[in-house]
Structures are given as C-alpha cells and as structure tokens.
Design a protein around this nucleic acid. Structure first.
Length: 350
DNA sequence: AACCGCATCAACCGCGACACG
DNA sequence: CCGTGTCGCGGTTGATGCGGT
C-alpha cells in the first residue's frame, strides 16, 4: 500500500503552464491570497492543476519581485559561502538573496556554479603544480646531486592551498581513518572545516580525543573560516557580519554554537551536545524563514539573518519538539524502508 | 537536413515536518 | 495520543534549445 497521492493525477493537467493558467492563478492570489490551502486553490479558480503545482508556479515564477538569471559575482560568493556552511539548504540560502528562489539557486549551482568552482580549483592545482615544478628545477640547478625526497607531491590538494583548511580531508584521512567518532552529532561540513584548520598545522601528535576537543573549540571560535574557502573566487563581501553565519552565541554564560535544532555547549574546552535526534546534521530546515512563503502568508520578515532565524527556530522548536518527536517516530514507522541519509559533506564532495 | 550531445530550467516526486481535530 | 491532511523542501526528471558534426 503506497502513499496516497495528493491529488487525482488522472484529472489533473501536468507539464508547462499556459499564459491563461498563469494569469488565472496570479490574479486570484493577488486578489484573495492563497487562503492557506493550496490543495483547494485550483478548484476555487477552476484550474485543472494539482495544488502543489500551483504553489510551485506561484512561488517560483508568478510571485512579485522574482528575479531570474543574471546572478552577480556577489551572489555567487554568498551562495558558495553558505553552501560551505550549511550544504544544500537552498531555501535558507535563498532567504539571503532577495528575489531569488530556492529552485533557481539550486539550478544555478548544479549547472554553473559548481563547474565554475571546479574549474577554478583545477586552475589553482595546475598553478601549484607548475610552481612546485619550477621550484624543483631551481633546486636541481642549485644542488646538482641533491635528490628531492620522494612523495613530496604525492597528492594535489583539492581546495585552494592558501587557505588553512585547504587540504584537510586528505591529510586527515592520511592520519586517521576513523572519522565517524568525530563527526558524530555534528554537521559534516563544519567538522570537516574545523578538522581542516586543525590539521593544517600538521600536528600529528594529537590523540583523537584531543583533536575532538580542539576541534570543538575551533568550531566555537573559528567557524567563519569556512567563509574564506572561496577566497579569491571573486570579490568576497567585505563585511562578513552581513552574511549569515553560525557565530557562537553567549547565552547564560555558555558559548553556544547553533546548528539547527541542535546546540553545542563549549565550556572550558570540553564539549557536549544536546540534540533532539542522533542524526549527524539534525534538522535545520526550519531555521531560515523561507522566502518562498508568499507575502500574503508572511509570518516573519523575509530577510532575516542566520542568527535571527536560528533564534526563532530555537524558541519555536522547544514548543513543538515533543510533538515532532512523536511525529517523526510515526513517520519512521510508516516508511520503514528509509533510504540512507547522506549529510552535506561539502568541502570534500563538491 | 538530420542527428547527437550537452546545457538549462521548469516541473514533478517523495518525504519529513507540521497543524489540527 | 493518534490519525490525517497539508506544507515545504531537496533531489530528480524531462522538455526544450543550441551548437557541433
């Protein structure tokens, strides 16, 4: 027994929208709003469309002040920076780019930005290779009989070398293969970022516990390193405070770093986490107020900072946490054959 | 002209979250 | 506490356009 369809697919038109359908939907919503029920909307207007389809059409295309294409360099930087921090949370990223939809940003990332980034990385790797090569030749000339030690250039770093977190994953994997204990209860990307910072100093003497503690401290103080991954990618916004960021917050004398519904206490170098569930990332989907909620339904200012939205999420999540836990367990029961959930492993997987 | 491969992007799908009776 | 309907999100698909051969 599968999931019940949201609408009668046989009697619903699919595919591209006609101008007539667009104008019907647009004029109705502009006049009456969505009425808080997308499913019932198409029947009211007389459209043979699924409610979800109407919602999507309105939010991604018909809604006022939508911008398509023509992403600026600054927008590129913001998207890349946020992707490093939070992964493919397109709605949150879109919340920081007025007029952009999550769908647009997602498409833009998948079709252009990702390639642009890879190309840049490739160029930098080549430049580094050339640099090392010329250095080699220079040394060879200087010391005729001197042999360079083998394995000096055994691996080309994936990330731009100039940043401390550049070759993190490679060095880490060389040193220690047990990553799971470190990533437990933390978003993969953040841990990756801090591990990178940590290992950039090549301190190979640290135990895993020491690394763990150190890493967590760095998360609290240095998370915004991640923003600099794209140094040189373009003109980075000069004022980073304008960007949403998981800055540590001082609450009740405890430095708290928020990751969605999960917070981490950093006290005297030791850390512990509080989380509603044991996933590696938790759920931050409720953090940012989605720009996709139309003006008619707006509950919060559309343009909120990451901190503001996080705080809001913390407040509201407490009220609904117990109920949601129940809901989650029910949903888990309902969908026993869950696909494995891959967290955002940006920094390594891009 | 016909075919092919690739890029783009609107639209769809399925799932977890959420709200409510 | 439970059942059910709806919303919002992120991943994926498929239609379309375009350039190259």
């Amino acid at each position: 027994m599968g999931r019940a369809p949201c609408c009668d697919k046989a009697n619903v038109k699919r595919g591209p929208w006609s101008p007539e359908e667009d104008s019907k939907l647009k004029s109705y919503i502009e006049e009456h709003g969505t009425g808080g029920n997308w499913i019932a909307l198409p029947q009211k207007i007389g459209l043979k469309r699924c409610g979800k389809s109407c919602r999507l059409r309105w939010l991604n295309y018909l809604r006022p002040n939508i911008r398509h294409g023509g992403f600026s360099e600054e927008e590129d930087n913001i998207i890349c920076s946020l992707y490093v921090i939070i992964g493919s949370r397109w709605s949150i990223i879109a919340a920081q780019l007025p007029g952009r939809t999550d769908n647009d940003i997602k498409n833009y990332w998948n079709t252009k930005l990702k390639k642009k980034l890879l190309e840049k990385q490739r160029n930098e790797q080549q430049a580094q290779a050339r640099q090392v090569c010329s250095l080699k030749q220079e040394k060879k000339r200087e010391t005729e009989n001197l042999m360079l030690p083998m394995g000096v250039i055994t691996q080309t770093p994936y990330w731009p070398q100039q940043h401390p977190m550049a070759n993190a994953s490679i060095q880490y994997s060389d040193l220690n293969s047990n990553q799971t204990s470190l990533t437990k209860n933390f978003p993969n990307n953040i841990v990756t970022a801090t591990m990178n910072s940590q290992y950039s100093s090549c301190d190979t003497s640290m135990t895993q516990d020491q690394l763990y503690t150190s890493t967590m401290n760095m998360v609290a103080t240095d998370t915004c390193h991640a923003l600099n991954v794209f140094q040189g990618f373009g003109n980075f916004p000069s004022d980073l405070s304008e960007l949403p960021c998981v800055n540590p917050q001082q609450i009740d004398g405890i430095t708290r770093v928020f990751y969605g519904s999960e917070s981490m206490n950093v006290v005297n170098g030791s850390t512990n986490t509080t989380s509603t569930e044991n996933t590696s990332w938790g759920d931050i989907s409720s953090l940012g107020y989605s720009p996709l909620v139309s003006d008619h339904e707006q509950r919060l200012p559309q343009h909120v900072t990451f901190e503001e939205s996080t705080y809001f999420a913390m407040q509201t999540s407490r009220n609904t946490r117990n109920r949601n836990d129940r809901g989650r367990s029910r949903n888990r029961d309902r969908n026993r054959n869950l696909k494995p959930c891959l967290g955002p492993s940006i920094g390594i997987l891009i």
